[in-house]
């Protein structure tokens, strides 16, 4: 790994929901241009971890740094930090009352102060790259799931974030549409976008990820290169999890 600090570093992060400890000291790093995927069964805390990184949840212990800056410090400026992180949710969360173009240009215009025509030009460029240029004027509810999710990814990219958080972006899609979204993520990875991604797509993780983390009951049980974690896991629980996935025909 290079000498510069990792883009994202998570150390000992703990999160409670009431009495229920959802994260039990998670440690994880994402270096620049790296793609790290988080795998784990449903309810293991993947989404909660993502939400903590994006400061949608307050951590109950531990430190998260973005480019070396402690973002879990209560003195930190939450809005300024979020500007440097792009997020795509499982359920797209596009704004239904705006066109695709307006969804994408909203943050560049309102948060980053880009002039309208410049924001639109940049958005159309991005839409072109994901094959959605002709849908720019449509409203999200009139797009297919795959198109909506690609639009959501473009929206997250439009502000040129340091880190892209992808939370099971293909889980709500038909298998047929999964491919188009994963292809886009792979292109982003090749262009050097730094990505932290929760996913159930093990094949994709194996091909694209630099590192795979297995999250089990709120802690990282095992992490390493995909060949190792997915191909020859050390921990019995990782094996169990992968066996279940193979049974479900996803690997």
């Amino acid at each position: 790994m290079s000498a510069s600090p990792p883009v994202l570093s998570i150390e000992g992060v703990v999160k409670f929901f009431g009495e229920h400890q959802v994260l039990r000291g998670v440690d994880l790093e994402v270096a620049e241009h790296q793609v790290v995927t988080v795998i784990g069964s449903s309810g293991s805390g993947k989404s909660t971890l993502m939400r903590c990184v994006n400061l949608l949840e307050v951590v109950d212990d531990g430190v998260i740094t973005l480019d070396g800056e402690d973002i879990t410090d209560p003195r930190a400026d939450v809005d300024r930090i979020r500007r440097r992180i792009g997020v795509v949710f499982q359920a797209y969360n596009l704004f239904p009352h705006m066109t695709v173009l307006d969804n994408i240009t909203l943050a560049p215009r309102v948060v980053h102060g880009l002039p309208r025509d410049q924001a639109a030009e940049q958005a159309l460029d991005l839409l072109d790259r994901v094959g959605l240029r002709d849908k720019a004027g449509e409203y999200p509810d009139r797009l297919s799931g795959g198109q909506q999710q690609r639009a959501a990814i473009v929206r997250a990219l439009a502000t040129d974030p340091r880190l892209l958080l992808l939370d099971e972006v293909t889980s709500a899609l038909d298998p047929e549409l999964v491919g188009e979204v994963l292809r886009l993520v792979r292109e982003l990875a090749e262009q050097g976008v730094t990505i932290l991604m929760a996913t159930h797509e093990m094949g994709f993780a194996r091909q694209v990820a630099d590192r795979v983390c297995f999250l089990d009951q709120g802690a990282v049980l095992e992490q390493g290169p995909p060949e190792q974690v997915l191909g020859d896991p050390v921990e019995p629980r990782t094996r169990q999890f992968l066996a279940r996935i193979i049974d479900a025909g996803r690997l």
Partner: peptide, 20 residues
């Protein structure tokens, strides 16, 4: 926010004090 297994770190205690 209490658990028999979990003790907040000094850093977390400082953050809580700051928020208070």
């Amino acid at each position: 926010m209490s658990s028999p297994l979990y003790e907040p770190s000094p850093l977390e205690l400082e953050r809580r004090a700051y928020r208070r």
